[in-house]
Write a protein that binds this DNA or RNA. Sequence first.
DNA 1: TCGAATTTGTGCGTATGTATC
DNA 2: GGATACATACGCACAAATTCG
Lengths: 263, 263
Amino acid sequence: MDQPRYLRLAALIRRQIVTGELAAGTRLPARQDLAAEHGVAEGVVREAIRQLAQEGHVVSRPGAGVFVRERPTARRIVRSWYRERRAGSPFAAALLEQGSRGGWMYESATIQAPPEVRTRLALDEPSGDASDVMHTRYVFTGDDQPWMLSDSYEPLSLTKGTIAAFPEDGPLAGRGVTHRMAEIGVLVDDWVEDVTARPAAPGEAKALGIAPGSIVLTVARTYLADGRPVEVADIVIPAETSVLGYSGPVGDRVEEWADISAR
Amino acid sequence: MDQPRYLRLAALIRRQIVTGELAAGTRLPARQDLAAEHGVAEGVVREAIRQLAQEGHVVSRPGAGVFVRERPTARRIVRSWYRERRAGSPFAAALLEQGSRGGWMYESATIQAPPEVRTRLALDEPSGDASDVMHTRYVFTGDDQPWMLSDSYEPLSLTKGTIAAFPEDGPLAGRGVTHRMAEIGVLVDDWVEDVTARPAAPGEAKALGIAPGSIVLTVARTYLADGRPVEVADIVIPAETSVLGYSGPVGDRVEEWADISAR
DNA sequence: TCGAATTTGTGCGTATGTATC
DNA sequence: GGATACATACGCACAAATTCG
């Protein structure tokens, strides 16, 4: 056994946690006590705790102590539900237990699309510094808790001057992209989502009420109408408490060791 | 400014990196030098570096130094490609640039399914300690680099005694779940994938050749035949270098602020 | 080929600030 | 308000990996 002391100590405590010997909510002994108990320096305990905190096993509160984490049950966020509504599906049950829908806050402004968004929306070169997209920033809440951030971009060339211009204003408020676009004759028929994960940026962590640096899932969504992108959104969701659910028919699916394409 | 010193130092270096002042590949000054240069203790530098490393801005190699990270371009792993083959799609181009397919290693064994897998496969109570699933562990490689792990479970009740029993043996080797199942009359028609992310477990980090604790995407996949699960797999992919691509028709899709269901 | 210098990873002990109880 | 506990900070030391002459 050639492992650093702090990893051995972390492994020891981790075992106690996963076996239930240390129940959720339990407070660990103070750093000094743990250090004395195991005959190591305080710094070793600190590193061990840090390790366990990063793994999500414990959470430390200044002045109070280090506590075994209550594991919040993850919510399954349905991103596509091909056939999942079908009776008899093992997943139909889950759909019946839908939680409260909660609400959302937003802020809209017309801006000039940043380069990355330009690419995704297939926009032409910007003309001067004229605004060319409607940018809407959402914070979704459920149970009085923020659980998802979204930055949406829609080309003004589509919506300008129509009743669909402002996503959350006018008669179509809150109807969603696809409905709103339909009202102005743009038929959104495809969606594409690119999913990955990264540490939360400080601002995101604050907005979501999670620890800075904790993991978030990011979804880069594109809505297409007849093959052309008509809306893109950058969605950020805490990974710890969320699972994204996708489904589809096997016929349209690639072999299970998926093909790779350069991005 | 009320921030801890190590965060201020991290912010300072981060700014130099994102502005390009410190180019990718550049070596940072040694800990002691940075400490002296900024008039702080070595520990402060250590914390700052740790912070930047967690954000993925730098990578440290023992004995060598701390280097500004080369940003590997992420691969887009297509998990469903509804209509993406269609010509004219903005994503069709990506599909043409398919990389080398690489290969995979595997290891199969019959085991008694662990509780979590039992649930997902809707298996009955275990009878004694009899094996009831075929467990296959995959390591997928591309460009001589592991990039995906997968643990697959198939009920023996379906495949036992057939030519499809061993996923990677016999005439159907390497044909994939859906083809193999089809050969024994099981028509896989649906798939469901639950995506989330977490820090890599030590074993996973080692198998994938990534830093321990770095972020991995996990995909819990289920293949269904006529609504019944016939295979489940736990897939692990480094988040840093990968994007999972999903797509589908809008008609089957829920409003964009997705419904939530308890898991 | 080999050894010396450099650099990170780890560990020790201590002290102060600040949040919690 | 006092005691407790974590977050941060200081300074030092040694082992192992790497680099380079």
